[in-house]
Measured scan of single mutants.
Amino acid sequence: MSIQHFRVALIPFFAAFCLPVFAHPETLVKVKDAEDQLGARVGYIELDLNSGKILESFRPEERFPMMSTFKVLLCGAVLSRVDAGQEQLGRRIHYSQNDLVEYSPVTEKHLTDGMTVRELCSAAITMSDNTAANLLLTTIGGPKELTAFLHNMGDHVTRLDRWEPELNEAIPNDERDTTMPAAMATTLRKLLTGELLTLASRQQLIDWMEADKVAGPLLRSALPAGWFIADKSGAGERGSRGIIAALGPDGKPSRIVVIYTTGSQATMDERNRQIAEIGASLIKHW
Rank of each mutant, 00 (worst) to 15 (best):
T116F: 06
P143T: 10
K32I: 01
G39M: 14
S104N: 00
L197G: 09
E277I: 15
L218P: 02
Y260N: 02
V101T: 08
G194R: 06
P165F: 10
A34G: 09
V101L: 06
A170D: 00
G154M: 02
A148C: 09
D36V: 11
G43S: 06
I171Y: 00
G239V: 08
K109V: 12
G141I: 00
A246V: 09
Q88V: 10
T261F: 06
T116Q: 14
G263Y: 01
A280D: 05
M67R: 04
T261N: 08
E175W: 01
S221Q: 11
Q265T: 11
R202E: 11
G279F: 12
D177R: 05
N272R: 11
K53N: 12
R176M: 01
F64P: 12
G76D: 07
A123E: 01
T187M: 10
Q274T: 08
G142N: 12
D36I: 09
A34H: 10
G85T: 01
T178E: 07
A230C: 10
Q274A: 02
Q265E: 14
A133V: 01
T187E: 01
L247F: 01
A124C: 10
A170V: 02
D129C: 11
G76T: 06
T179M: 11
G239L: 04
L49M: 09
E56Y: 05
P253T: 12
K213I: 00
E46P: 05
K213N: 02
G142Y: 11
Q86W: 06
A170P: 11
Q274G: 03
I45T: 02
S104D: 15
S51H: 03
R41K: 10
A124K: 13
H285Y: 02
T107E: 15
V72Q: 15
N173D: 02
I54E: 06
H94E: 12
R189I: 04
G52P: 02
S104C: 12
L167Y: 02
P143C: 03
G90P: 10
T112L: 09
I140Y: 12
V157T: 03
D207E: 05
R202L: 10
I256C: 15
K144W: 12
G263H: 09
M153R: 10
V101H: 02
H156A: 02
T186C: 13
G52R: 05
M153A: 10
G90R: 10
P253I: 05
D269Y: 03
K53G: 04
L137C: 10
V106D: 06
G76E: 04
L111R: 01
A230M: 11
L150V: 01
I171F: 04
E102D: 13
L111P: 03
A222S: 15
A185E: 07
N152I: 12
G239N: 06
L89E: 00
L218H: 09
T267V: 09
P60E: 07
E56G: 09
T107L: 02
N134Y: 06
I243M: 13
R63C: 09
V78I: 00
A40F: 01
W163F: 03
L135V: 11
V106M: 09
R255E: 00
A123D: 04
P249K: 03
T179I: 15
K32L: 02
S281M: 06
A235V: 12
L192K: 13
D212K: 01
A148D: 01
L28V: 05
L74K: 07
V82F: 09
E62L: 11
L74D: 01
L79R: 07
T116P: 02
P224G: 10
V117P: 02
K144T: 08
N152D: 14
V257Y: 06
I229S: 02
S68K: 13
R162M: 13
L100V: 09
L219I: 15
Q37M: 09
T261H: 10
N130F: 03
S57K: 13
V82Q: 13
I283A: 13
L100W: 15
I125D: 15
R255C: 07
A200P: 05
R92H: 12
Q88G: 13
G43K: 03
V157Q: 00
C121G: 03
A84R: 14
N272S: 05
W286S: 09
T27G: 02
N272K: 02
A133Y: 07
I283C: 15
D113Y: 06
F228W: 12
L160W: 10
G39P: 09
G154I: 06
L38R: 10
V78A: 09
P165S: 07
E102L: 04
